[in-house]
């Protein structure tokens, strides 16, 4: 039952988007978010959408997966659209008592909804095409200038890597423990909140015990291999930027420029 949770939600593939340098992908995603927020009107927003559609088609990610990424934000989308439709001042189109719908309200609401959807789809595209570990590597490299101000960048990245590495392990473990307790007749589906909370004890205690055990084993294993932090460490997977990475970044910046230009023309 827990297998359905996708954390990191990486979708393996060999598309052009998958093979981009992750550092560039992060920056390009940033540029894309810039486009969405710089856009003042629908024309400018459409340019951002074209960019999203292009990257999406190149990534060969199934469309249904992209829709799935939107599922958790449906309440936010509804909330924003309702808020914008009903509470924006302007000339009313329809009026029922104190509720009025204005043309501005409809427009802003549509604009906001498209922007949020595009935002989530764009960032999901990043996580769909980049494995969590590569992503952390890239973040470490991108943040490495901050080492100069004594920010423990390597340690933070290592913590993230370990956390990501152990999510599937812990999910699997939880699954196993749940199955084992269910096999002993544990009932987790019925009863009131208090009873259900109590029913979690047989799962949480073994889970904590095993998490601590794993942490200890990992610490020993790391020490055995003389791990001592980031200084002087080399990497197995070197991140190398190629022509196509600069090209992709260039394209995204051109799109951003177009968005800003359109703003100047229509604004």
């Amino acid at each position: 039952m827990l297998k359905d949770i996708t954390i990191g939600q990486y979708f393996p593939g060999r598309s052009a988007v998958h093979s981009l340098d992750p550092r560039f992908k992060i920056i390009i995603t940033g540029v894309f978010i810039g486009m969405l927020f710089a856009a003042d009107g629908f024309a400018a927003l459409a340019v951002g959408l074209v960019f999203l559609a292009m990257s999406f088609i190149m990534s060969k990610i199934p469309f249904r997966l992209m829709l799935k990424s939107l599922k958790p934000i449906v309440p936010i989308i509804i909330f924003t659209s309702v808020l914008n439709i009903f509470f924006l001042d302007g000339a009313p189109l329809v009026k029922f008592g104190f509720i009025k719908i204005t043309a501005e309200g409809l427009r802003t609401s549509a604009f906001m909804v498209i922007r949020i959807i595009a935002l989530i789809m764009g960032s999901s595209l990043l996580t769909y095409t980049t494995s969590p570990i590569t992503l952390t590597d890239a973040i470490e490299r991108l943040l490495s200038p901050l080492k100069k101000i004594n920010l423990p960048v390597h340690e933070l990245a290592m913590m993230m890597t370990i956390a990501l590495r152990f999510i599937p392990t812990l999910i699997e473990e939880t699954d196993k423990i749940i199955s084992a307790q269910k096999a002993r007749g544990a009932d987790m589906e019925s009863g009131n909140i208090l009873q259900r909370a109590k029913a979690l004890t047989p799962i949480l205690i073994p889970l904590f015990v095993s998490a601590f055990r794993r942490a200890e084993e990992l610490a020993v294993a790391m020490e055995c291999r003389c791990y001592q932090g980031g200084d002087g460490r080399t990497r197995l997977r070197q991140l190398r930027s190629e022509g196509k990475d600069y090209f992709a970044l260039g394209v995204s910046i051109v799109f951003l420029d177009i968005v800003i230009m359109l703003n100047c023309i229509f604004g």
Binding site: A180, G185, P206
Partner: peptide, 27 residues
């Protein structure tokens, strides 16, 4: 599940009670 008892691999990781007695009594 009461009719078909299943002992998982490494079943010792499912123990959780304060005493052995209580743990065996869980099922």
């Amino acid at each position: 599940r009461f009719k078909v008892g299943l002992v998982f691999q490494y079943p010792e990781y499912q123990l959780f009670e304060e005493t052995v007695y209580k743990d065996i009594a869980f099922g």
